[in-house]
Design a protein around this nucleic acid. Structure first.
Lengths: 241, 241
DNA sequence: CGCGTCCTTGAACCGCGTCAAGCCAGGTGG
DNA sequence: CCACCTGGCTTGACGCGGTTCAAGGACGCG
């Protein structure tokens, strides 16, 4: 594990802690925080484990998954730098979901007690966290609407747009900047991997997208993709980077 | 409209404001709050309207809906006494969803500025609100998983259990304590009203439920319903009353 | 080079949406 | 008070979209 990052010098400008804490509090949290580095496919925390704090993503990409019938996984959220994993919530004390790194990822763990003290002393921090959850809730509600109303082709078009907006594109070749198997894309929207293949093929024939290698997908005609889902009034429900 | 309720004497014991505010703050909020009484089918706020504050449900039942393709409505949340409508969240200033009363319902509207002042002065209030949203987010994520993985029969079984847990039962006949048309139930889970009819019929034949009148549904064999959805590991994702 | 993992494509099946017709309850007006 | 009418419920027939099962191909790693 590499050296602990000094909060004050941390490159993550989206971090709630850094944005709202005084110098003193930053130092106090720095002493308490546990910085953990993960590689792709590492489990950051597992469904059923105990919630003893909250993880802030310092840098990286993470999928949040829940187990369904016969352990089929369902991706319920994608998270990147600056976002929070492991919801607080009195009453419950176990994670109902797992978080898995999609690439090299660094997270900062802060225990509940420290966080509670910070919340009590720094109202703006609490407010920001509240607004974060409130926004996430709204996004999830909208996404839920999509998932129940769209047909498969529409879901796939929507999720490609979603992925581009969350992860951006690679500067060199313009493909979406994340590695996901067909199976993972399928588990975001609850369809089969075969169907992803078929419709991705259709989209490529229509010159809406272009495949690069095994994982790379480049959105060639974004407007065309939008057209497929326009009637649902696609909201910009994704955090701007 | 009947007389304004004195916060201190309000019967709603779940109200965040009442639970965490000092006497002084309660009085201050009482002066500012706008108490509104609605009948069934009244629109509390409408998709696209401006968010100028937050609604607390003093008493009643509310469905939160979003419009999808060709204005088909989708119910994204059910809310009862003590819950909050109209998410805060900086950046956005329009409601992405509508809230509609399901029966006689009283809400208290508090404007953003007053609420902000309260949050800055009462950390515990902010924390509670944060935890409310965090819990709601978790519930929604779990529900999203169900909606993408379950088949229609499972979804219907799950939503019956859900409705009973949210709204409870009528003391006199044991039916679920809310009036919803088949069409409304269908729009909770994104299926057709016809399919609801069919599967409700199947459930009744299997003695899992019993229909009473047009709207009444009584869960006769709750374990039997649970069996249908057990493999998804049905979590208790509903606020206890 | 060989193997494992993932992608692709085809064929068959079936769950569920769609359309249509008939029924039932409650509300309204003559 | 009854006849009518509207809105919701129920049931049936049909067709399609999407899952399932299976086989073959492509990529990337040791």
């Amino acid at each position: 594990m590499s050296k602990k990052i000094i909060c004050k010098k941390c490159s993550n400008s989206a971090c709630f802690i850094k944005k709202h804490c005084s110098s003193d509090w930053l130092k106090r949290i720095e002493l308490k925080k546990i910085q953990i580095e993960h590689q792709a496919k590492d489990i950051i925390f597992r469904e059923g484990g105990y919630m003893e704090g909250v993880y802030f993503i310092q840098q990286g990409k993470v999928k949040v998954v829940a187990k369904g019938a016969n352990n089929k996984e369902q991706i319920v959220r994608m998270a990147i730098d600056g976002q929070i994993l492991g919801h607080r919530g009195s009453g419950d004390d176990k994670y109902p979901i797992s978080a898995i790194a999609l690439c090299d990822t660094t997270v900062c763990f802060i225990d509940n007690d420290t966080l509670y003290d910070a919340f009590m002393e720094i109202p703006k921090l609490t407010l920001q966290m509240m607004e974060f959850y409130s926004r996430e809730l709204r996004r999830t509600e909208i996404r839920m609407k999509y998932l129940t109303q769209m047909n498969v082709k529409e879901k796939i078009a929507e999720s490609l747009l979603f992925l581009k907006q969350v992860f951006g594109i690679k500067p060199n070749d313009g493909t979406i900047n994340v590695c996901l198997t067909r199976c993972e894309i399928a588990s975001m929207i609850g369809v089969t991997a075969e169907q992803i293949s078929r419709d991705i093929g259709v989209f490529e024939k229509k010159k809406l997208i272009k495949k690069k290698g095994r994982f790379g997908i480049k959105l060639v005609d974004e407007n065309g993709l939008h057209d497929i889902v326009r009637k649902y009034g696609i909201e910009q429900y994704v955090e701007q980077r």
